[in-house]
């Protein structure tokens, strides 16, 4: 049966792709549809047609922003792919710390914050052993809803049990007083962790306003939602923000597409990272 919302879905899919690069196609239109329905409900509109009218004809910025936000998939957990964190500490961060270097890390699609907080826990543990070691984490995402939660550092009982060891829970979280009948309580990340992370809004497809360069960039589980061209564009941009020989970390199912002149895939015992290859100019001077 022909989907009555077909042309409307196509309109929103095109808008989403243009603004944030996330691909929705016929296969995933049903997901897009249910997300748009939640937008209709959120703004108390009467139909999908009205939503379309508001965005396409009236160019309502507030609604458009909200649609782009709900188009993102924010699924994440603490220590997602735990081996990645272990390997980062062992193979990349410890050697830098041993040289007396401080470490600057960018979590480039941090969602609700579990990724940068997990890193911060590991780095603080390292700092306890090596007092002069210092680090900072820049955490960005497109989704304002996800960022608000990340900044608050407040998680449900179910969320603090996904991937997070109990020792870390009691060490780095404060339990909030019980407020309603829902099972369990909320938990808030403590200030010691928060103070090492700065959260901000950032669209990977817009002009890059980030300053400085990084020892590690994590860009995990975001490229899978992007088209090949956008992946290429993002990876190419990231290259400029990495210090020489430092590492890009992608999701376990993601790779560097055809950018083998920018990155070298490096397989460690339990994880694979992508080492920045020195820029073209350097290679020319080597001739």
């Amino acid at each position: 049966m022909e989907d009555l919302n077909g042309p409307i879905l196509k309109f929103f899919a095109d808008l989403i792709f243009k603004e944030i690069g996330i691909v929705y196609n016929e296969m995933t239109f049903y997901q897009l549809e249910s997300r748009l329905e939640s937008v209709v409900a959120h703004f108390e509109l009467d139909s999908m047609e009205t939503l379309h009218h508001k965005v396409a004809k009236l160019r309502d910025q507030k609604i458009t922003k909200y649609i782009l936000d709900v188009a993102t998939n924010n699924e994440t957990s603490f220590f997602r792919d735990a081996k990645v964190f272990k390997t980062l500490i062992r193979e990349v961060i410890k050697p830098l710390a041993a040289e007396g270097k401080s470490v600057r890390i960018w979590s480039a699609a941090c969602s609700t914050g579990q990724e940068p907080y997990s890193l911060a826990m590991e780095l603080l543990t390292l700092q306890k052993k090596q007092k002069d070691f210092d680090f900072s984490i820049v955490a960005t995402d497109y989704s304002q809803r996800a960022l608000d939660k990340a900044k608050s550092g407040i998680y449900t009982q179910l969320e603090v049990q996904r991937g997070l060891g109990s020792a870390n829970l009691v060490k780095y979280f404060n339990q909030k007083p019980k407020v309603d009948d829902r099972p369990g309580t909320l938990w808030e990340v403590n200030d010691e962790l928060k103070k090492h992370i700065s959260f901000s809004h950032f669209n990977l497809l817009e002009a890059w306003s980030i300053t400085g360069s990084f020892d590690i960039i994590l860009c995990r589980n975001v490229l899978i939602y992007q088209s090949l061209e956008k992946r290429y564009e993002i990876l190419k941009n990231m290259h400029r923000y990495l210090k020489d020989d430092s590492y890009l970390v992608l999701g376990c199912a993601e790779s560097i597409s055809n950018l083998s002149d920018c990155y070298e895939s490096t397989q460690f015992e339990e994880a694979r990272f992508f080492r920045k290859l020195a820029t073209q100019t350097k290679r020319v001077s080597n001739l």
Partner: peptide
């Protein structure tokens, strides 16, 4: 070694 708070899921 670890602590699970009820209710919990299979993933947890």
């Amino acid at each position: 070694d670890e602590y699970i708070m009820k209710p919990f899921t299979k993933d947890i």
